[in-house]
């Protein structure tokens, strides 16, 4: 399909080429162990997280410097979120939630650098993140509550006749969770980057280049917001699912 598009009016649209995964060193096939550009940017995200949360706080200062303030801000935000949504007993899983939040946030922000690669725009990555949460939460729910966990699907406040119908709906919505959980993140990031790329392709025409550049700037601002909000949303939905596992029943 890319074949036919690129000849239209002399404009070259390659909105999806930025997501292509290439091996870092030389050509060849992408094996499961090959270091690729996805690997590089995920590793950079990890390095940034470690740099901020470990080296930023190495002073252990009572009066924090800038990096330590940011680290404490992140910590406080996620900690409060976990505590507010799941309750005190959810704090045991706080490191994992923090890991998810930091990874997604930094992957999203790093993807906004020009010439970078957005690892969170790939469904494989977000689906893995979502499935980790989904499987983990389901297992946790059965381990913590036993068969009582199935009460999540049996809405006891509804009339008896409606309950089987509601149970089917609840079951479907439960299994759609990882799908929407992952596609929301990947779709948002992918859409934003693709739209920026499309505007960038329009910039080749001199007459509309200023409009295009203004549009790219505006989209970029929106994408910064989206990067933060999607990380927040992914994390808070994780907390909500965790709460369902810890305290099932409506």
């Amino acid at each position: 399909m890319a074949v036919t598009e690129e000849e239209v009016e002399g404009l070259v649209f390659h909105p999806m080429d930025q997501f292509i995964i290439k091996p870092l060193f030389g050509g060849g096939d992408v094996h499961w162990f090959t270091p690729t550009n996805a690997t590089l940017w995920m590793a950079l995200a990890a390095l940034c997280i470690i740099g901020l949360l470990v080296f930023g706080t190495r002073g252990r200062a009572i009066i924090p410097n800038r990096l330590q303030s940011i680290a404490e801000l992140l910590y406080g935000m996620v900690h409060k979120m976990v505590e507010d949504v799941t309750g005190k007993d959810g704090l045991k899983y706080f490191p994992y939630v923090m890991t998810l939040f930091c990874f997604i946030l930094f992957a999203n922000f790093l993807a906004l650098l020009p010439k970078s690669f957005s690892s969170t725009s790939h469904i494989a990555v977000t689906a893995t993140l979502a499935l980790l949460v989904f499987v983990g939460v389901t297992v946790l729910g059965f381990v913590k509550n036993g068969t009582h966990f199935l009460g999540l699907f049996w809405v006891s406040s509804a009339p008896l006749a409606l309950r089987p119908v509601l149970a089917v709906i609840e079951l479907i919505s439960y299994f759609v969770r990882p799908v929407s959980h992952s596609i929301r993140l990947a779709g948002n990031v992918m859409a934003g980057h693709a739209v920026i790329k499309v505007f960038a392709a329009f910039a080749a025409v001199a007459a509309i280049a200023p409009v295009s550049i203004v549009a790219i700037t505006a989209m970029y601002g929106l994408e910064v917001l989206v990067a933060l909000i999607q990380a927040y949303v992914f994390t808070i939905l994780t907390c909500v699912y965790l709460k369902d596992a810890l305290h099932p029943g409506h």
Partner: peptide, 29 residues
């Protein structure tokens, strides 16, 4: 490839956060 490296990166981040960063920050706070 992506899933493998994602799991590696997540494991590294989780290890560092749970062992070093989070106890330190909570200690500081």
């Amino acid at each position: 490839n992506q899933i493998f490296w994602l799991l590696v990166v997540l494991a590294v981040i989780y290890w560092v956060l749970s062992r070093v960063a989070l106890p330190r920050i909570s200690g500081v706070i």
